[in-house]
Amino acid sequence: MDTTVANTGTEGKTWGGGNQPLKSSYGKMMMWFFIVSDALTFSGFLAAYGFSRFKFIGSWPIADEVFTHVPFFHGNYPMIYVAFMTFVLIMSSVTMVLAVDAGHHMKKTKVTWYMFLTIIGGLIFVGSQAWEWGTFIKGEYGAVQTNGGNILQFGKYETVDGNAVFKRVAVSDIAIDAHGERVEHERKNGLWFVDESALPAYTVDEVYNGLKANSDVLVRTQIINDEGEKTVLSREESLNQIKNNGKLVVQGANLQVNEYGTSLFADFFFFITGFHGFHVFSGVVINIIIFFNVILGTYERRGSYEMVEKVGLYWHFVDLVWVFVFTFFYLV
């Protein structure tokens, strides 16, 4: 096909890619095969996520309750920001394909501008993902982890438009501070080779006392009931659970604990979106290299912008993966 002609000095060299049995240049074909193998890596991750989710189908966190933030706005806006991120990535895919198209017509200025917009889109996406990670790590309400590793969250019923709605309450709002119980172990005041991570802001006892003092606050468990919502315990059960099973006050999420529910959710979130974000980042770097090559006129001299097409394939693949990550992490 004449849209893919590239004169890169490989003509006639069989092992240099001189043959085109599939009417596609060696480089482009190899990019496709790389994409297939990378797609399998990502499906391995997503299928493993599906495995863990099916394993804990009755207690998996509900994504709508986890990702509710939008930068610069307060309030509860599930999905809005991640939809924006998806749109940014699709949009940068469009500018990329426009750059490829302009390359076919050998229009250097247009290719330059479209590549530039693609890079900007990629940077906005990576930045958004960093913000999303930050929000997730910081957490919002906090929770108590039980001996068995389950998460107990707090909230109370409020009347909204005549219906009783369960509203979350932050641990820091109810806990009664009892000072000076336990001091963080540091290297300078104990064994020099042992230290520990920062202590939680509150102890379980402080939370328990706070729960006792606030008679309308209830505990919500991880278990999903028939209506598809998390089970809220009665007042006595709430007090009993915290007293008997509470072990650690957790705030936010990391690889060990996760205030939103099972810690596997956080592990997979960091791993899969992190791996995808790494792809976006490397895509941006490769795009920048190609961008400068375009400006320097490398492809103009070569007589073909096929290189733009090859990185374009990679960039679209990153978008393609995000479409699936979006579905399986945020929608389903």
């Binding site: 299928a47 599906g50 495995f51 863990s52 099916f54 394993k55 189908i57």
Partner: peptide, 9 residues
């Protein structure tokens, strides 16, 4: 993987 996950559940 989903078959196995469902079984363990």
């Amino acid at each position: 993987l989903l078959q196995e996950g469902g079984y363990i559940e």
